[in-house]
Amino acid sequence: MSAETTSAGATANDVRLYDVDNPAPVIEAPRKRTKKTGRASRGNFEMQAWLFMRLSGIVLVVLVLGHLLIQLVLDGGVSKIGFAFVAGRWASPFWQVWDLLMLWLAMLHGANGLRTVINDYAQRDNTRFWLKMLLYTATVFTVLLGTLVIFTFDPNIS
């Protein structure tokens, strides 16, 4: 039966009708639900990710808008930003914690958002896997580098 199906598919260019002995090829759904669907559970990860997006979003509104206000609007705006300005702010643990929190929340929030975008739009399993690997690598790199800079920042560097 399968051999006949293949031969029918091969000659599909010239218009011909299929019949009982020569059936039309079976059309598979693009991504069928499989037996594994709905079984291989990853616990509560999706729920926690969904909750994290909402909660971190609320905190980020305060952190990011406050950050933009301080950096770009108050006290002469963008022209005041320089090495000395950053060094002055990071002398205080409050701004260190602010920036650290903003870095972590914004990076994880954005990475999780991109993860859902990749899950929604990448069609092939391989594409999805490698895009996510690239995303995770970039996220981990940025978060670690930023954390390192905030904690080891030396205002007297030459």
Binding site: G38, S41, E46
Partner: peptide, 14 residues
């Protein structure tokens, strides 16, 4: 609820 808590469950709703 446990079934819909899966990665292809309600959390994929946009």
């Amino acid at each position: 609820l446990e079934i819909l808590n899966d990665k292809d469950g309600v959390w994929r709703c946009r």
